[in-house]
Design a protein around this nucleic acid. Sequence first.
DNA 1: CATCCACGGGAAAAACAGGGTC
DNA 2: GACCCTGTTTTTCCCGTGGATG
Length: 334
Amino acid sequence: MITDARVLRQEFVPGDLEHRDAETTYLSETLAPIADGETPETVIMHGLSGVGKTCVAKYIGDNLRQEVLDAEFQYVNCWQHYSRYRALHRILEGLGQTLDIHRQSTPRDELFERLRQYDGPPCVVVLDEVDQLEDTRQLYHLHELPQFSMILIANREDAILRAVDERLTSRLTGSERIRFDAYHEDELVSIMAARVRWGLIENAIQDDQLRRIADAAAGDARVALSILRSAARRADRATENQITTDHVESAIPAGRKEVRQKSIDTLIHHQRVLYDILEEHKEIEPSALYETYQERVEEPKSDRTVRNYLAKMEHYNLIVADGTSRDRTYRLRE
DNA sequence: CATCCACGGGAAAAACAGGGTC
DNA sequence: GACCCTGTTTTTCCCGTGGATG
């Protein structure tokens, strides 16, 4: 059934991006000056999750490295590298400049100094989920350096501008924007069809089944591919050479769950306890939530810390906070 | 209208992480 | 290995704000 599991994975970047021609072309045109040794404008890419922002950025990065020999391309996921230090370190690491950085002997702002002195080929830095960055002043400084150009990615355009240092905001008002809309059903179907061609045996799945998956994914390619993967695995385990409608139907909740589970797995113990409490209640008010949390955990963190945890979990789309004031309640998403 | 909760920014403190030294 | 040093990261503390709520 499955001939190449890699192409079904969400992180897989296809050699040919479907349905993002306009965005891809626009991005590569914007970055074109880099071939002449000039610094391209900062680009802002925004749109809901699973609409190909990251994919387009990585795709362009691959192309850039192939076409312009003298260019570097660094991708930073600010979810994972949200502190100033980590984000900068990640860039330097990518450039192979961290070899002799020892934490202890690294003076203040040495990391940034390294970047300033970087004199290799021009570098495009992609900051994914940039609104998660804690200290955005560094972003401003990075913007100052001619050898670096930036692609900023976030779900919401205004989140970028809000997250960014105000000195940078004014400069970004004229920058290039690329908006990514949710995929249509047809587009999701053909995205999946391409993966099916590469990753599954022939006639493994019917067109109307792909359509069903696309419908369930509601414009999110990540979810669509997760469902497809789950359906293929089911058929594979049953050693059938066709995916049945049953496989698809049971893969829909499983696929959604898989996407969600990825987020849950990143939670630390205290956050997980909070999550479990929310799972037991349809809805719960902050004080009750905190009390329950205190009872369940050995050494409870302060209420302020718990609020930070909850905010983080809300950003992960795991929970929803209703109300802004005394009417605030928390619940799981969906 | 006073009060009450909860939120969330910011500063400061505490905890943590390597690495060097003796 | 215990201890210190320097920088990072997490947690706590303090507090102003603001929308309910009675």
